[in-house]
Design a protein around this nucleic acid. Structure first.
Lengths: 225, 225
DNA sequence: GTTTGCATAATTGTATCCAATCTACAATAT
DNA sequence: ATATTGTAGATTGGATACAATTATGCAAAC
């Protein structure tokens, strides 16, 4: 897991179809903000990019739509979903409720390896100079803290929820908080985990998410004017 | 909403494609338990049932798989997902966390109309003699209590989560509790809503879900032997 | 200048056809 | 008898082709 191989879990469990590859690629591009909200996703264009027909593209789109990352209308096409400030507020409220619970369940089960891995992620995040990578490292840190919870359904919901707002989270890291703030909060959460203080880790996680959400929404509402 | 028309929201907002129709039909059949866990879903068979080619069938399947209702393997086909006792336990734990929060948010916003509608659903559930309809009415009652929360993302997560365990919930209503128990709990929750006691409504909802989950898992573990 | 109508181009939805892979069972060797 | 190989049928993954619908550009009328 810590070596240089860039294998995804799905690559190991079962051979990936074209639809899988396209789904992953589009999902990543949307999450990273490389495709903006409202931008059209033409089946033919995407098919040509991947040198395939439109069939697997459509299958990938169905999944993206089921997940809420794109919205499509019959004979009009699909566009990347864009979230209103209200929707973002609600999703951060959701995150602030569920993620503390997940980390609380994880803390008693966290291995020393996991704590070391999280510390590495935290340091890597603090040391990273390329802003394009901050989002990935931020996400990896949080995921590391949650994964020992042994609650696959909770984790899948957390992942899908984060996918929806990941683009916007990156705005906070880029422009708003400068990310120095995030690093300090990360270290505090991690320290609470190391001290096996589940309640505190949960509480700090809740604050971390609430702060990010409020900062982000304030930023977006300013941008709008 | 209370009339005899059986229109779904999607039918009104946009014209349904074959894939939409097939998705809805398969989803309902799985949720209702008409197709059992582990049962194979052959593309060709389903396509013939709907008098279409396999293309829209596959698109429907992609959505079902994204939602976790079916699992598929390349060149092997798709089967209806079946949940282990552990998975069911986790999902009920999730429900017991999120649904009380949703009802707490809904109570202050509940209209008199909604309360009346919920009372009708509750009475209809109590009066229904056809066991095949208990699941639908149970679900409709809960949905009525949640809908005024004005939290579409929370509601979508609640819905998708309930879809996963709906088949199993019906077992509780059929065999285990006889459903008399469920009716009493429903009325208690509704009374708390009428009294605008959000905390109590949430607490009763949590207990309601926890009881159902424990009863169900105990039943399943007995069945296994 | 704006609007309306229509022809044309783009785009999506689906059917049909072919390739790749798996499953089951029979034939053969050990 | 067991293990292995080979082959036929079933099943899925994907490409191509066509139909249905929507967007676009342009000319004519107001």
């Amino acid at each position: 897991m810590a070596n240089g191989l860039k294998l995804k879990a799905s690559d190991l469990s079962k051979q990936a179809s074209s639809a899988d590859v396209i789904y992953d690629a589009l999902r990543d591009a949307i999450i990273r903000g490389e495709i903006e909200g409202g931008e059209a996703l033409r089946q033919d264009t995407i098919a040509q990019m991947f040198r395939v027909s439109r069939i697997p593209v459509r299958e990938a789109m169905q999944r993206l739509e089921a997940q809420g990352l794109v919205v499509s209308e019959r004979h009009k096409g699909a566009v990347v979903a864009s979230l209103s400030a209200d929707q973002i507020t609600e999703i951060f409220q959701f995150r602030a409720l569920i993620e503390p619970i997940v980390i609380e369940m994880a803390v008693p089960l966290m291995t020393e390896e996991t704590l070391a891995e999280a510390q590495r992620q935290c340091d890597a995040f603090a040391a990273e100079t390329d802003p394009m990578r901050w989002g990935d490292l931020n996400r990896a840190f949080h995921r590391a803290l949650y994964k020992d919870s042994d609650k696959p359904y909770f984790l899948s919901v957390v992942d899908k929820t984060n996918d929806l707002v990941e683009r916007y989270v990156r705005l906070v890291l880029y422009f708003v908080q400068g990310m120095r703030h995030a690093v300090a909060e990360h270290q505090a959460i991690l320290d609470a985990c190391k001290a096996r203080n589940a309640k505190l880790a949960g509480e700090l996680t809740r604050k971390h998410i609430e702060t990010a959400g409020e900062t982000l929404v304030a930023y977006l509402r300013n941008q709008k004017r």
